Computed example of a mutant assay.
Amino acid sequence: MKKILLVLILVAGLYWAFKSKDAPVPSSAPAVATPAKPVAGKTFNKLFPSSAEGFEVQFTQEKEGYAQADLLKNGKKLAQLSVSDTQANPSARDKFNNTTQKIAGQPAAAVGSMGTAILVAGRYQVQVRSLDPSFRANDREAWIAKFKLGDLQ
């Protein structure tokens, strides 16, 4: 009788041990909020620099969380300007984690050899990508600074 009781206790203990491994473990970590919906692309258009001094800003793409324009001079495409909401793609912020470079007071990073970007308010990426070799890093930085960055804060 003792052996049967011992086997039953052992079986019940094993059952309970394996069942509890499948149960969710309570956590003291705060719940992660559901990300807000990305900003509509057309709302970014007003943030782009204006056409001036022989340069033309020509909008080329607009979708949820993204707006893009070409920068032209005398009809020649020099660069591509963009603003994107990284809310739907948080890994896009990773390149700014360890940067010490700043442009217009915002963390900055190179994007390949032809691009420069900043992260505004920990969420919005403003990027200028050279389409012509004559448009250099200092030109990209100057054009990033021309965006209306205060409206993204």
Score class of each variant (00 low, 15 high):
Asn89Gly: 11
Glu53Lys: 13
Thr34Cys: 02
Trp143Met: 04
Ala109Arg: 01
Phe55Val: 03
Arg129His: 02
Asn98Asp: 15
Ala142Glu: 14
Ala121Gly: 11
Glu56His: 12
Asp70Val: 05
Val126Trp: 03
Ala145Lys: 07
Leu8Gly: 12
Leu152Glu: 09
Lys21Ile: 02
Phe96Gly: 06
Ala23Ser: 13
Gly54Ala: 13
Val57Pro: 01
Ile118Arg: 02
Pro107Tyr: 02
Gln101His: 10
Gly150Trp: 06
Lys19Val: 12
Phe48Glu: 10
Lys21Asn: 15
Pro24His: 11
Ala92Asp: 05
Lys95Ala: 08
Gly112Leu: 05
Val126Tyr: 00
Asn98Ala: 15
Ser113Cys: 02
Gly150Arg: 03
Leu149Ile: 03
Ala109Asp: 01
Ile4Gly: 07
Ala104Cys: 03
Leu72Asp: 05
Asn97Ile: 05
Phe147Tyr: 06
Gln61Ala: 15
Ala17His: 12
Ser28Thr: 10
Ala69Ser: 14
Val32Arg: 10
Ala104Trp: 03
Val39Arg: 07
Ala31Cys: 12
Gly41Leu: 02
Glu53Thr: 13
Ser134Trp: 00
Phe44Gln: 04
Val11His: 03
Trp16Asp: 02
Ala40Ser: 08
Ile144Met: 07
Leu131Cys: 06
Ile4Leu: 05
Lys76Ser: 11
Pro133Asp: 11
Thr43Lys: 07
Ile144Ala: 10
Val11Pro: 00
Asn97His: 11
Pro24Arg: 06
Leu71Ala: 09
Gly150Glu: 10
Lys19Asp: 15
Ala109Pro: 01
Gly105Lys: 14
Asn74His: 07
Gly65Asp: 02
Lys146Ile: 00
Glu62Thr: 15
Pro133Ser: 07
Ile103Cys: 09
Lys73Gln: 13
Phe48Pro: 00
Thr116Ile: 07
Thr100Ala: 15
Ala40Lys: 07
Phe147Cys: 03
Met114Trp: 09
Phe48Met: 09
Tyr66Trp: 11
Asn89Pro: 00
Val39Cys: 01
Phe55Ile: 02
Ala23Glu: 15
Leu5Phe: 06
Leu6Met: 14
Val120Cys: 08
Lys148Arg: 12
Leu10Val: 10
Pro30Val: 06
Lys2Arg: 06
Ala33Glu: 13
Val83Ala: 14
Gln61Gly: 14
Thr116His: 08
Ala117Asn: 10
Pro30Asp: 15
Ser50Gly: 08
Gly150Lys: 09
Val11Cys: 10
Ala23Gly: 12
Val120Tyr: 10
